[in-house]
Design a protein around this nucleic acid. Structure first.
Length: 386
RNA sequence: GGGGGUGUGGCAGAGCGGUCUAAUGCACCAGACUGUAAAUCUGGCGGGCUUGCCCUUCGGUGGUUCAAAUCCAUCCGCCCCCA
């Protein structure tokens, strides 16, 4: 049992409270462990895996894990932060996203032993009176304690009522599920704690709150998130996955090791940073894409970046008639406009058959088959058809 | 309902009649350097091409003016105070 607790504690940022957890485990209770996600974006990324792995730990220890899909909450559309209106998601979109979510999540979790729930099941029938009853259990002052709300309030930024309702609905999920434990990122701490309070109000034993640190995105500054574009998706192709990990800073690499692997950090720090990073990239890529793909991705990376060679697999593009290099750059979606294409050429970022070009060459001055490179990582094979 | 304020590029934030494609910072892109990076340095960061010029941008619309991001009117969004 002590080992169980240690396993659960590893890599957490908050565990409230350890004592309660010990007591419940000591009673031999099979804990109901909840993790909720709103299926607003279809892809899971490495940031999500930190918490999913923690869920997996509970599963391995024989507890009942519940993967909650916030289909109802997604439908309302959390306006948090931004003033722009988020498009309301249709049922179809939500279902589609939910499906990709579960597909990806069961790369990690054991499907057979997981309960999947949808919060529309109880929120849809809650009704206005139910909502009011729920809302009566918290106060505005209490909401404003939450860090991001407070900041926005103080700097005269809008906070919608829906945003106040969100934590309450999430808390109600815990009531409906009779959760013993709820997991979340450290930014979820407030919401999870509110769950405790609301559960008590509804006569339940308060859930244990477990948060894990947020995984920083590729920029090393903001949390990994699709909307910041700094993420590594679980279904990124192997080359991207490998490449993205290689592009992070050394400092960030250690955090990734800490949060994403079981590796012994001491040993990692003794390695050459580049080797360590390659090992990390390999491990992660292997985990989600398989060993063969990971080996290939590693080879490809060495080839393209270390030896500055041309990769094996390049997309092919057929062009007809007269063209300029700038036209192809647009066509291949490497740039968005002629101006930016010309800019890129001027700055020496465009190569044809590995030779830098310094002008927007026309088709007649190039052969009929060639490889075009834009920047460091964009390659395309061009076939000219007459 | 009354009063006050505010809206500028992906974000933050200057500009407050001409010298505005709009300072500065962040983000982003390219080049150099390197360990693939990071840091640093250099250049860039609305669109078109015949590269020097043209066109389009400062919440929307209409107006004043030779000239408007800048002034006026109106509408919309947001914030604050009072009720």
């Amino acid at each position: 049992m002590r080992e169980d607790i240690e396993l659960i504690k590893r890599g957490t940022s908050d565990l409230i409270s350890v004592k309660e957890l010990e007591e419940r485990i000591a009673k031999g209770k099979k804990l109901r462990v909840k993790l909720g996600v709103d299926p607003t974006a279809p892809d899971l990324h490495l940031g999500h895996t930190v918490i999913i792995n923690k869920l997996k730990t509970f599963q391995n220890l024989g507890h009942q894990i519940i993967f909650l899909i916030g289909d109802f909450t997604a439908r309302i559309g959390d306006p948090s932060g931004r003033s722009e209106v988020r498009p309301v998601m249709t049922r179809e979109q939500i279902e589609k996203n939910a499906k990709t979510y579960t597909d990806q999540v069961f790369k990690i979790l054991d499907r057979e032993k997981t309960i999947v729930e949808y919060n529309s099941k109880w929120l849809e029938t809650l009704g206005v009176d139910g909502l009011l009853k729920l809302a009566a259990k918290s106060t505005v002052a209490q909401m404003l304690v939450r860090d991001d709300f407070e900041k926005r309030y103080k700097s005269d930024k809008p906070i919608s009522i829906v945003e106040f309702l969100y934590p309450l609905l999430q808390a109600y999920d815990s009531v409906a599920l009779k959760a013993d434990v709820e997991l979340g990122g450290s930014d979820q701490k407030f919401n999870l704690l509110l769950g405790r309070q609301i559960q008590k109000d509804y006569g339940l034993e308060p859930q244990i709150v477990l948060t894990v640190p947020l995984l920083e995105g590729l920029d090393g500054i903001r949390k990994m998130s699709k909307s910041y574009g700094n993420y590594i998706a679980l279904n990124d192709n192997p080359n991207d996955m490998f490449g993205k990990i290689m592009s992070i800073s050394d400092e960030l690499m250690f955090k990734y090791y800490e949060l994403l692997t079981q590796a012994d950090l001491k040993k990692i720090k003794e390695m050459h940073p580049k080797e360590a990073k390659a090992a990390l990239a390999f491990e992660i890529t292997q985990r989600y894409c398989g060993e063969d793909e990971a080996v290939k991705a590693k080879e490809e990376f060495e080839k393209v970046f270390a030896k500055k060679d041309i990769p094996d697999d390049i997309n092919q593009l057929e062009v007809t008639g007269d063209f300029k290099v700038s036209d192809i750059l647009i066509k291949a979606s490497f740039v968005s406009s002629g101006n930016s294409a010309r800019r890129l050429i001027k700055q020496g970022g465009v190569k044809i058959n590995s030779k830098k070009i310094d002008a927007d060459t026309e088709s007649k001055n190039i052969g009929s088959d060639f490889i075009l490179q834009a920047g460091k990582r964009n390659f395309v094979k061009i076939k000219v058809k007459s």
